[in-house]
């Protein structure tokens, strides 16, 4: 009898370990798969050429990925620049200032925002943000803009990562002990001083991790960005230029025009770049986070 339950214990342990390892292997297998699929284009063009060339003419066998790469970086950067201060302030308000009744209404609203399908954000961006940029904002800065711009994509994306960031920050700030707040208040500090010098400072590694998570999400967001970014393969030189991030490139073109030589390989290579950007980004941030935590 006793033996049976020990066998059961060992078996379940082994099964769970296998499942976990398979999930890990999946990442590696995906990387290898993408590499093999993009091998034809790498055989014909050098890696350096592909990454630094900026002309994209598949019919003429010119594959420059720089515009897409820059598009991805720009859109993500804009999104985080807008979302980070807004979400920090919202989270500070909710944890340090707001009455519990306010919290009771805001938290469900944030959850709803976080769980809306991204198509809805795309539609909303197309109907509200794009015309707003085209009619109201852009005329102040440039002669003409259709509204389908890097800025539009950045704004839509920032609103998508906002609820994620806010809920992560609220979680972080709530875990700062009240004794620490009491220590600060009893010296005569205001709520704002306590929030800045004690609460956010204490949560700094967590804030960093949350931002990394948000950036990872922003890097990969496809549909909503694709609907508002303009989809022109050019390096954006201003906020009012159209851009074409990597996920949009893949989603727009996969399945079409695959009769072209090297086209499928090129799209696979786009996926490979994205894969590596996210991977590299996550690994570096892990290392940095580990350093910060050790210092504290």
């Amino acid at each position: 009898m006793n033996k049976l339950r020990i066998i059961k214990d060992r078996a379940t342990g082994a099964i769970m370990a296998t499942i976990t390892i398979v999930a890990l292997l999946l990442v590696i297998v995906m990387g290898i798969g993408l590499y093999l699929k993009s091998a034809p284009i790498l055989a014909e063009h050098s890696l350096w050429d592909l990454l630094t060339a900026s002309s994209w003419r598949p019919f003429k066998n010119e594959f420059g990925f720089l515009p897409f790469f820059m598009g991805t970086i720009w859109v993500t950067l804009i999104a985080i620049t807008i979302a980070l201060p807004l979400s920090l302030l919202t989270a500070i308000y909710l944890t340090e200032y707001a009455h519990r009744i306010v919290k009771r209404f805001v938290f469900p609203a944030l959850d709803i925002l976080a769980s809306l399908p991204s198509v809805i954000y795309g539609v909303w961006g197309t109907l509200i943000i794009v015309p707003w940029i085209s009619d109201t904002l852009a005329p102040h800065f440039v002669d003409f803009s259709a509204g389908y711009t890097t800025l539009a994509a950045g704004i839509v994306l920032s609103i998508m990562v906002l609820p994620l960031l806010v809920s992560l920050f609220v979680e972080l700030f709530s875990s700062v002990s009240d004794e620490l707040r009491a220590a600060s208040y009893s010296l005569g500090s205001t709520r704002w001083q306590t929030a800045i010098s004690v609460v956010t400072k204490k949560s700094l590694p967590g804030i960093f991790a949350a931002v990394v998570l948000a950036i990872s999400r922003a890097l990969g967001e496809t549909i909503a960005v694709l609907m508002v970014c303009g989809n022109l393969p050019q390096i954006p030189h201003s906020l009012f230029d159209a851009c074409y991030p990597l996920p949009a490139l893949i989603a727009n073109n996969y399945g079409e025009m695959l009769s072209l030589p090297l086209y499928e390989a090129a799209l696979m290579f786009a996926a490979l770049i994205l894969f590596f950007v996210v991977l590299l980004f996550n690994v570096t941030s892990r290392v940095i986070l580990y350093r910060i935590e050790k210092q504290q």
Binding site: S177, L180, A183, L187, S189, S197
Partner: peptide
């Protein structure tokens, strides 16, 4: 201002997330 005039030593020590110097200087800075 009243809270400045009435200090608190907590039950468990609660060093603020800053240096030793920063902890003492914090009250003065705020």
């Amino acid at each position: 201002e009243l809270r400045r005039r009435i200090g608190l030593v907590p039950q468990r020590p609660t060093p603020l997330p800053m240096s030793i110097f920063g902890n003492i200087a914090y009250g003065c800075k705020i």
